[in-house]
Nucleic acid binder design. Structure first.
Lengths: 129, 129
DNA sequence: CTTGACATTCCAGTGTAGGGGAAGGTTGAG
DNA sequence: CTCAACCTTCCCCTACACTGGAATGTCAAG
């Protein structure tokens, strides 16, 4: 498939795909005789993986690392296992940070929902934050 | 109070305060005869509000909107409540995406751990990482 | 044969949230 | 008097993740 198709299928722009290729998140696509990139169908799954990671707030560098590990396949390499362990630990850390932030925001939101407009003291900025 | 005092009281740098002024989050402070900014005491409360908003993951543009409502004499509480709702929903989305990715990485790790030959040359196999 | 929708590369700009450091003015202490 | 610690404006720099646009090439349809 050409870059426009792949981009549309993944809900991205062609610019983004070329950027991801430059950034090492996508392997360089093979080219048609006319020089156009020709993507295999499973590129869309890879792009969607990247999209999910981005939606989760991961940086492209972290997504790139995870993809590189995934690309390493079945290599029973101790080094790769260590890297995967580190990724898992990092993901756990990020999840717990996000959950902590969530509970803070949930508390603020509950306070805001329980109050009336009268509880918003004009002298203060806003009692809810 | 001078900018350094206000910044220290709010746990920020003087750079940040000037940046906030340029960005419309802080009104332009009145100046002492020597040209130094002279902040009223309640600026610290405003800065702490900004800090709390940032800590809750709000962008400066959102915080600016809240402050603008308050400065216009309106109680921004309903608006804040909306922002907090959105923030909560976004956090929930991010957390669920992160947990989905975590389970993918956990699967890779389990697969890698089930392999046999644990000794390999990190230089050779994993050099692309 | 031309038009329009694709594609290519390359360079440059955007927005976010500040940080670095120069060049100079002001103030209090020793 | 000098020195350090403040302050001022000014401009550039950072990282991240794209985005825009120019100049050019390719290709199917009318």
């Amino acid at each position: 498939m050409r870059i426009g198709e792949a981009a549309a299928a993944a809900g991205m722009t062609t610019k983004t795909l070329r950027f991801y290729e430059d950034s090492g998140l996508l392997p360089a696509a093979k080219r048609s005789p006319n020089g156009y990139r020709d993507y295999p169908d499973d590129s869309v799954a890879r792009l969607e993986f990247i999209r999910r990671g981005r939606a989760a707030g991961l940086a492209l560098t972290q997504i790139r690392e995870i993809l590189a590990l995934r690309d390493a396949g079945e290599a029973p390499c101790a080094h790769v296992q260590d890297l995967l362990s580190n990724q898992l630990a990092e993901l756990d850390h990020q999840i717990s940070e996000l959950m902590a932030l969530r509970s803070i925001v949930a508390g603020l939101h509950a306070t805001a929902a329980s109050g009336t407009d009268a509880s918003c003291d004009p002298e203060q900025i806003c009692s809810y934050l």
